[in-house]
Every structure is written in C-alpha cells, then in structure tokens.
Nucleic acid binder design. Sequence first.
DNA 1: AATACGGGGCT
DNA 2: AGCCCAGTATT
Length: 339
Amino acid sequence: MPAALTEFSARLLAWQRQHGRHDLPWCGMRDPYRVWLSEIMLQQTQVATVRTYYARFLARFPSVDDLAAAPLDEVLALWAGLGYYTRARNLHACAQAVVALGGFPRAADALEALPGIGRSTARAIASFCFEERVSILDGNVRRVLARLLAWPHPTTSARAQKELWAHADALLPPAAADMPRYTQGLMDLGALVCTPRGPRCGECPVAALCAAQAQGRVAEFPLRAPKPQRGRREQWWLWLERESDGALWLQQRPSPGVWAGLWSLPLFDAEADLRAAVGLRTVELLPRIDHALTHFDWVLHPRQVRWSDSAPPLEVGQWVSPTDRPRYGMPAPLKKLLG
DNA sequence: AATACGGGGCT
DNA sequence: AGCCCAGTATT
C-alpha cells in the first residue's frame, strides 16, 4: 500500500484516540447485538434522537433473544416516533433470524443478507465487532471523501457510490486490529470536524491530504444533486372519542406505506367522506397540522366527534382506552395532537 | 436508476 | 424553509 494512503488512516486513528467521541452509549462496544441495534436506529437519524430510544430498547430487550421473543406490536410501540418504521419490522425479523442462526454472523457479506442490514450497516458491524477490513459509506464518509478528493459529481448516484466505495476501501488501515477505532474515527470526523456547514479545517487531522482544502474550495463539496420535487397530500383525520370512557377509535396502518404498523386515527381523502362516516353528529374543527415527510408535505385536518352509541362507528379499527394507549404505537404528530 | 420511507435539529 | 442525518428495500 502506498505511503500516502496509509497516512490517511494513521492520522485519523491518532486523531480519534485524542479527539474522537468516546461518550456515546454504543461507543467502543464489541457486542454485535448492541452495535447492530445502534446502527439500525442511527440510519438517517441523529445521535441526539437515538439516545433515549436506545436506552429504552436495551432496558426492555437486554438480548437479541428477548427482542426475537417479543410481539412485533410491542417493538413497533417502542419504536414509535423514531420514524422509518420498516426498520422496526426488519429489526424484529432480523432478531429472529439471528436467533435461528445461533448468533450474529461474523462476516460483513453474511450480515448483509439479514433484513434491514444493507452494505454500510453490515460493514460497520463487521468492522466494529469483528475487526473486518471493510469500509462504511454513510453520509459522513460521502462528505469526507467528496472533500478529500474534490469529487466533481454529486455523491449520491449509483455510479458515484460504487466508485466512492472503492476509494473508501483503499484508505483502510493496514492492521485489522485498528478497524473499530478507524470506523469510529471516520464517523467522528464527519460529525465533529468535516461538518456539512462550517467545517473546522484547522482542526482536521487529514487537512494536508485534502484536495478541496488545497484548492480552497471546501465549501463547494459535496456537490448537490438537484432535489426532486416534493409532493403534497391533504387529508382529514377523524378524532373519534367514546363519551363513556374517553377511548379512541384507532386503525392499524397498512404495510407498506406511511406509518406502516402504527395505530392512527382514521384518515379520509375528503371532508365529505369523514362526515358521511359519522352521520349527523356534531363535528368539531381543530387547527390544521402541517407535517413534512421526506418526499411530500402532508396537511392534516383534525375533526373531533364524540361517540355515545354502543355500536362500533366504523368497520375497520377498534376502541383503545386511555389506559391501553401506551401499548399502541402512534406516529409523532398524533401523539402531539392528543397531548 | 428512481422512488418510498419519519421526524427532529439546526441554520 | 431548507438541509442533514451511522440507509435500506422495492420497483
């Protein structure tokens, strides 16, 4: 391996030892269960958000066996609010697969075959837990490489990803024993120094190797891909409350789809549909809720109706009493609406 | 190759 | 009002 390439990992390793993050709950962990759980939660999700969920999950499911044995609904309820709910479904399926295998596979390629574990997560687990010499390619690494190489294209295309993986692998440290610290160092560098805005190049251990820095163009990288046009959805949300005990009428969301597996108030595409469903009862208007998802903006119009009949109001769904509510995973805006 | 999939934190 | 986040699965 050329000296210029080993210099990157050598500098990063020394920097991580001195200046990296050592206080994260999953940091320095070699237990694949704990590392895997953290990696899944951290997919497209910030560290600060994950902390509380991670602690709650470990308290409730101390081992992969506990997680595998739990009902999916309980996993979803614990995941509620974290987003990307396919992760919770895959988490549960993966736990059961791991138990069936007698433990976590030790190779990245085998890990990648498990549900919810893609290339980057598989390699993160393998490098952290089993010292495999494989590189991750997450948002941090894409940004670091884009600047280090003054990468002249957006980093998100399939073509760019393939080439960046090759670069990332070429930069790995020679010694497998350094892999856990190296992988952590890459993440820490992106989080602490090579940040999306206001990068601290003066504190960067690899600034001397950085092409963007040499050209004085750090702020230009990574190049932005044109962003797809956002969609827009408008729906009416029926807050149906039973007068006798304050129970709510909830429906489990279909999978696949937004909020798959979670429990929601019934949604209607038109206010007329909602009113047709509740007959001539009084409908109370509540302020609209604007909820932004990745690919569309969602306008929700809550409508409250008190139900005094003994008959169920709709064909689909069930009454959920205030006492039972914590056992039903509900999306963030609904939790907020209900106070 | 493009699209679906959450929610919060930050500027 | 954007941009970003320890991405993956599906089509």
